[in-house]
Write a protein that binds this DNA or RNA. Structure first.
Length: 261
DNA sequence: ATGGTAGTCTCACTA
């Protein structure tokens, strides 16, 4: 069971790239972020023609998440609980039945949080992370295979940035952001990429200032596995080459293979 | 300190 997270930065502008990547990568489940589309605008026909079920949680212009799955959904929940005032589309959970039992998958787009001087940005990010931690603690109690996949907008460690000194005033690298991610992981999650390699790897290169050409990247897209999912982890990888394609997203797909039969 | 790029029912905002 190949599960992938990918911040696609606009699904309508990226549909040709997405279809080409699906053909090449052959994922079973794809968690997309920043679809930047309302649900009715999602280009579902072409993707369904490749055998995927699609569940979206979109909004106009910004944000928006989706899950594509070769297996059908038994249940779908939209929105992160804990704040009825929060109207940003950043969270969708799908429950899928496999031959090896139930699998719970989340596609999340954590707030960027910049600038750190504005509560409506950085405060919102930290409060969102508190809500995510509470939600995750509840779900872990189910003792099911659970994958929290997404753009976390957090650089976990200095090694996860080519030039960490450039990020010291950025919301993605604040001690509060990194501490909140660490607390989430310490509930009992295994981070897939760091389980298979200690090397420096990136998942995002800015469009600006030749970041890709200079390999000036950061690692902010993560797959967090519950113990029951981590037990099944066979491999994990970053599909870096996709950043070099025509009209790319600024993020690349991050994949984990779980044994599910 | 600035600007560099990309996407979106923008004429600004988000990243």
């Amino acid at each position: 069971m190949k599960i992938v997270t990918w911040n696609i930065n606009g699904v309508k502008a990226r549909i040709d790239v997405l279809l080409h990547w699906l053909e090449e990568s052959q994922p079973d489940i794809v968690c997309l972020q920043e679809i930047k589309s309302v649900d009715e605008g999602f280009p579902r026909l072409e993707i369904e023609a490749m055998g995927y079920h699609i569940e979206t949680h979109g909004q106009k212009g910004f944000n928006g998440v989706a899950i594509l799955s070769k297996l059908r959904f038994d249940e779908v929940n939209r929105g992160l609980p804990g704040d009825d005032e929060d109207e940003q589309a950043r969270f969708i959970e799908g429950v899928i039945s496999t031959d090896g039992g139930v699998l719970r998958v989340v596609s999340l787009y954590l707030p960027n949080g910049n600038p750190i001087t504005e509560d409506r940005k950085f405060g919102y990010k930290l409060r969102w992370m508190e809500r995510l931690e509470r939600w995750a603690a509840e779900r872990l109690a189910l003792e099911e295979p659970l994958v929290l996949a997404g753009d976390y907008n957090v650089i976990p460690q200095p090694i996860d940035a080519r030039q960490p000194e450039l990020w010291v005033n950025d919301a993605l690298y604040q001690p509060e952001s990194r501490g909140a991610l660490r607390r989430l992981e310490y509930l009992g999650f295994t981070e897939a990429i760091r389980t298979v390699s200690d090397e420096q790897m990136f998942t995002f290169w800015d469009y600006q200032a030749g970041a890709w050409q200079k390999n000036n990247g950061i690692r902010i897209d993560h797959l967090l596995l519950s113990p029951e999912a981590a037990n099944r982890l066979a491999s994990a990888s970053i599909e870096k080459h996709v950043r070099g394609w025509e009209k790319p997203s600024d993020h690349v797909p991050v994949a984990a293979e779980l044994a599910f039969n």
